[in-house]
C-alpha cells in the first residue's frame, strides 16, 4: 500500500495487491511440502539416467538390432492385443453402465435430492481411485490376467463417463422434454425421444476420447498383474532393459496412433 500525491495536491492510495497473498501462500506450501521430499545431491546419479536409456534403446549383450526389433512382432503382438481388447471392452461396458447413473445424477431430470446426491457420491467415489489401484483390487477378485484389466478399465470409465455425461445432460435444452411430457409421454419415453437425441453425439465423442485415455492407461495396468504390455515391462524391468525399451517404443507408436485416430474421428463428429 502506498500513497501518491499529485502536483495539484490530489492524493490517491494504491490498494494492496492480493496477488502477494497468493504468492506467499504458494511459497509457504512449497516450503512446507519440500520438507517431505528428500534432497541429497550425493545420491543423485544423473549419469545413471544415460546408462539406463542406453540399455533400453540398444540391444543387450550379444543380441543384434534385428533381435531388438523382431522382438516386437514375435513377442509383443499378443500383449498388445490384450491391451487393446481390455481397453475396448472396458470402455464399452463402463460407458453403458454410466448412462443410468448419469441420468440419475442430472438435476434437471431427477428432481429429488435423495436420488441425485447419492448418485453423484457414487460417481465421485469411482473417480477418485486411480485405474492402477482399481486393477490391483480387481486382481484380488479374479486373479491376474486380462479380466482384471477389463474390470479396472470398466470401473475407471464408469467414473469419468458418468461425470462427463451428466454435465452434458444438465445443459440440454429442456423445451423438447416439456413438449413430450405435455403429450402424455412417460419419463422413459421423454428420455428416449427428447434427451437421447441431444446427448448421443457428445456421448459417442466422449466414448472415443475415453477409449484413447484407456489405451494409455491400460498399457501399464499389467504392471500390477492385469495383463497386456505392462506385464512384459514388469517381467523384464530387472534384467532385460532392451525388451522394456522395445515395449515402450511399441506403446508410443500405438498411443500416438490411437490419439490421432481419436481426434480425427471426433473432429468428423462435430
Amino acid at each position: 500500500m502506498s500513497k501518491f500525491t499529485l502536483t495539484n495536491g490530489k492524493t490517491i492510495v494504491k490498494p494492496f495487491n492480493k496477488i502477494w497473498i497468493i504468492v506467499a501462500c504458494v511459497a509457504l506450501l512449497l516450503y512446507l511440502f519440500s520438507r517431505f521430499i528428500p534432497f541429497d545431491p550425493t545420491f543423485i546419479k544423473l549419469d545413471q539416467l544415460k546408462v539406463i536409456l542406453e540399455k533400453m534403446f540398444t540391444p543387450k549383450g550379444n543380441r543384434t538390432w534385428n533381435d531388438y526389433f523382431m522382438y516386437i512382432p514375435k513377442s509383443l503382438m499378443r500383449p498388445l492385443q490384450e491391451t487393446i481388447n481390455m481397453s475396448f471392452a472396458g470402455t464399452i461396458i463402463g460407458s453403458l453402465i454410466a448412462v443410468p447413473l448419469a441420468v440419475l445424477s442430472a438435476k434437471n431430470i431427477v428432481k429429488t435430492k435423495f436420488i441425485y446426491i447419492p448418485a453423484r457420491f457414487l460417481m465421485n467415489l469411482f473417480r477418485t481411485i486411480p485405474a492402477m489401484i482399481l486393477a490391483l483390487i480387481a486382481v484380488f477378485f479374479v486373479g491376474t490376467g486380462i479380466l482384471s484389466g477389463i474390470i479396472a478399465i470398466t470401473l475407471f470409465t464408469f467414473g469419468i463417463m458418468s461425470k462427463m455425461l451428466y454435465e452434458v445432460i444438465e445443459t440440454i435444452d429442456m423445451n423438447p422434454v416439456e413438449a413430450l411430457e405435455s403429450t402424455g409421454a412417460t419419463k422413459v419415453e421423454s428420455l428416449r425421444y427428447a434427451v437421447m437425441p441431444q446427448v448421443l453425439p457428445m456421448f459417442v465423442s466422449y466414448l472415443i476420447y475415453i477409449f484413447e485415455i484407456n489405451v494409455r492407461a491400460s498399457t501399464i495396468l499389467g504392471y500390477v498383474g492385469a495383463g497386456g504390455i505392462g506385464t512384459v515391462i514388469k517381467d523384464n524391468i530387472l534384467y532385460n532393459y532392451d525388451r522394456v525399451g522395445a515395449s515402450v517404443l511399441l506403446m508410443l507408436v500405438v498411443i500416438l496412433f490411437v490419439q490421432m485416430l481419436s481426434s480425427f474421428i471426433r473432429s468428423k463428429l462435430q
Binding site: 546419479k45 539416467l49 494409455r216 515402450v248 498411443i255
Partner: peptide, 20 residues
Amino acid sequence: VFPEIVLALILLKGFGMNAL
C-alpha cells in the same frame, strides 16, 4: 504419450527410490 510409470522407472535410477 510417454507413459508416466516408465518415466518413473527410468528416473528411479538417477534419483533413487524416494519421493524425489
